[in-house]
Design a protein around this nucleic acid. Sequence first.
DNA 1: TTGTATGCGTTATCAC
DNA 2: GTGATAACGCATACAA
Lengths: 325, 325
Amino acid sequence: MTTIRDVAELAKVSTATVSRVINSNGYVNDGTKKRVKEAIEQLNYLPNDVARSLFKGRSQMIALFVPDITNPFFPELARAIEDVTNQYDYTFVLCNTDNDIVKKIDYLNALQQKSVDGFIIVSSSLMEEHLKNIQAPIVALDRSISSDISSVTVNNRVGSRQAVKYLKSLGCSRIAHIAGPEHVDNAIYRMRGFLDEVKHEGWFNSSYVVSGAYNFEMARKATVNLLTKNPEIDGIFAGNDLMGAGVLNAAASLDIKVPEDLAVIGFDGISLGEKVTPALTTMAQPIYDIGTRAAEILITQISTPDSTVTAEEFNVQLTERQSTQ
Amino acid sequence: MTTIRDVAELAKVSTATVSRVINSNGYVNDGTKKRVKEAIEQLNYLPNDVARSLFKGRSQMIALFVPDITNPFFPELARAIEDVTNQYDYTFVLCNTDNDIVKKIDYLNALQQKSVDGFIIVSSSLMEEHLKNIQAPIVALDRSISSDISSVTVNNRVGSRQAVKYLKSLGCSRIAHIAGPEHVDNAIYRMRGFLDEVKHEGWFNSSYVVSGAYNFEMARKATVNLLTKNPEIDGIFAGNDLMGAGVLNAAASLDIKVPEDLAVIGFDGISLGEKVTPALTTMAQPIYDIGTRAAEILITQISTPDSTVTAEEFNVQLTERQSTQ
DNA sequence: TTGTATGCGTTATCAC
DNA sequence: GTGATAACGCATACAA
C-alpha cells in the first residue's frame, strides 16, 4: 500500500505538508499544493483510514441494529439511513441482531472496539444497563429504550385507534386483533389502541386478541384458529403488515372472501402490502422519514456531544387498498 | 477509554506481558497471567481494534455488496453470510449498491481504506478493471465477474429449462417469459433456458418474452400488457420470484384465475413466494447454502492468500405451490 | 509557508 | 518468563 510518506518523497515535501493538503488544513503554497496533488494522483494514493481512526479516536462509521433483516420493514428503514449516512461521508454498517441479547452485546462491543461513531438501534430487549459502557451516542428507532436516549417513533396507539375506527366505519361489528410480541413496546401500544376502541363494545371478548409475534407464519396459524372458532369475525386489525399478509393467507385458505366477508388492515406500510392479493390496507408509517430523522439526530449528537435528548413521534397515515374495500 | 497500559500498570507488568495474555501468545507465568486477567476484568478492558488493525493491516471485517436490499432475496442471502462471518469472528458489513457503479466504487475505496479483509459481491456492472486496485480477496456471488475471481452461482439455464418443462407437463401450450435485466448474466441464462425449450415450438413468437427488470412493478405492468394482447397464454415463467409476484398480481387484476387459467412459476425460492396468494411455485435456489459457501470460500482465501480460484455451481430445485396446481 | 518530532494503542522482536 | 522498544500510517504542536 502506498503511504503518505511515498507521496511526500515524490513531491519532495514532508509528510506534514501532504497531510495539510489532504485535509485542507493550514497554509500551503499553491505551487507545492499542486505538486502534492499530482503525486497523490500519480501514486493513486488513498489515506489509510485505520491510522486516521487511531489518531482521531473516531472511525466515520455508523451502525444500525435491526432485529430481523428478513422483515421487509427493516431493509426499507435501512435504505433511508444509508442515504443520510453516505451523504455525510459515514460508512454504514448494518447489524442483524435476531432479537438475541447476546448477539447485540457482542456487536456493541465489537463495534465499540472499532471506534464506531454512533448507533441507531431498533430493540426491545436492550436496556440502559447494557449500554452504560458505550461511549458513542445512540438513537433508538421504532422502539424507545430509555428517557436518556433520543428516540424516533410513531404514534402507535392513536394510529391503532384510527385503524379500528376505520374498520367500524366500514360496518365491521366483530373486530379481532393479531398482536405483536408482548415484550415489544410498540406492539403493546398497538394493542392498547385496539382495546381503547373495542373494550366497551358489547360483542368484545378477550379471545379476539391473539398473538402473532410480528411473524407471518405465526399470524397465519393464529388467524386460522381464530376464524375457525369465531366465524362471526368480520374485521381484523393486524399489528403489522407482515402479520396482515398472514391474515390474508389464512383467509384464502379458509375460503373467506376479503374484503367482502372480512376486512383486513395492517400497520407499517411496507411494500409487501402492495404485492399481496388483495392488496393490504394499512396504517402506514413514514418509514423513509423516520429513518432519515434518526440518522440526522445521531449525526448531530456525534458532532455536538452535549446536545439534548429528544423524543420525536411521527404520525401514521391510513392507506386504503383492496383488503378493506 | 482504558488501554493496555492501564492494565499493565494495575497488574504491575509490562504491556508486552498483557498483550501475551490477551493473545495467548508466548510464555507467561500462571500467577502473572492470573493477575493480568484480574486487572482486565476489573478495568473492563477491551482491546482497541483500530490499533490492532493498524498494526496487522487487517480489520477482521468482511463486506457484502448487494444491488437492492429491498429485494427479499438479498436479506436472505445476507443472513447466511452473517452467520458464517460471525462464527469466524469477523464483523459483517452490508452495503447496498443500488446497482450504481459509482456507489460501488466509493464503497470499495472506503472499505479498502478501512483495511476490510475481503468482499463478497453481487454485481453485474463491476468489471475486473474496477477491481484491479483492490488488494483484498473477492468472491462473486449469484453473478460471476471474471474467470480470475471465485464465484458461487446456480445452474440458471438448466433450472429454467426444468421450469418450462414442468409447465409443459402441466399441459401449458402457450408459455411466456418475464425476463430480468438484459445486463445481468443470470437473467440472460434464465432467458436462454426458456428459449431452449420453446423456440422450436410452432406457437412460439418473440412477443412472448417481455422485460420485467427483476422488479415487481415493472413485471406487473408488463404482464398486464402481455396478457391483454395475448389472451391465449396459459403459462408464465418469471425470471425471479419478485416478478412472479407481479405476475400473480397482474393476473388477479385481470380476473384471470391462477392456476386454473394460467400457471405461474418463478425463480429464487424467497419466502415472499409463500406469502402471496396463490402461493408461488418456483425453482428454488439453496439460498442459505450458496451464501454460506461464498463466505467460506472468502475466509479460506483470506487465510490462504494463494489459494486457487474456484467456480462453484449449485442446483436449483422445483418447489411446487398453488400457482401451478 | 514548511519541516521535525511525538503520540494514537497495539503487537512483535530482541534483549535480559 | 518478562520488559523495553520499534513500527503500523497518520495528524498535530511546535520550531524554524
